[in-house]
Amino acid sequence: MPDNTAETSALTQRLDECRRRYPESDPAMVADVVRAVLTTMRGDLTAPETSLLHEVEELGQVIANAKAEIEALRVDDISASHIPSATDELDAIVAHTAMATEAILETCEALDGIADRLDAEYAAKLQEATTRIYEACSFQDITGQRITKVVQTLKRIESKVTQIVATFGVAGEMPGGEVDFAVETEAALLNGPQLPSLAMDQSDIDRLLASFD
């Protein structure tokens, strides 16, 4: 069997050079052009060249399929909306657990203050209980670090998705199908807890309700 390594290497170099010189070119269009040119040369091709042509055609098809699949996934939504939203939610979890932990610690410190006024036996029991609570509160540090790692991973995914979108030149918008308006409207109301920066507090809600009176 003939050794195609040198030819493949040379072709790879040429393709890399083309990619560098024409970064904005649509891979599918390039594949079409190459296919058209090579088709006119079929009669002149050797067996290894024909095999290589077949590989290039298959590669073109793989690229076209990948592009179609990425378009169907609406990957631009992942980097533009889903990941930023997920990281905001995770940041909010860290902030809320930190606030709750601080409140617990404050209460424990108050209990420790009371222990000074109890007899030795009860003071010891109370201190033992507050010690357990202090220990348990260290969860906030651990979960905070774990969530930070998740956020960093999400940001790496976001970066990779952005690269993929740029590489394949995926369009921003895909035509959507018909939607059930009633279902869509209710779904828009079901968002779970709001981020603090977007949420109304109880006094805002009370004022809003009062405005209807």
Binding site: A98, T101, E102, L105, C108, E109, D112, Q127, T130, T131, Y134, E135, C137, S138, Q140, D141, G144
Partner: peptide, 17 residues
């Protein structure tokens, strides 16, 4: 020394005990 204020508070209280 800790960048989590909560952790500093926990350790401070445990040391106090």
């Amino acid at each position: 020394v800790d960048d989590y204020k909560t952790m500093l508070r926990i350790i401070r209280n445990l040391l106090k005990q």
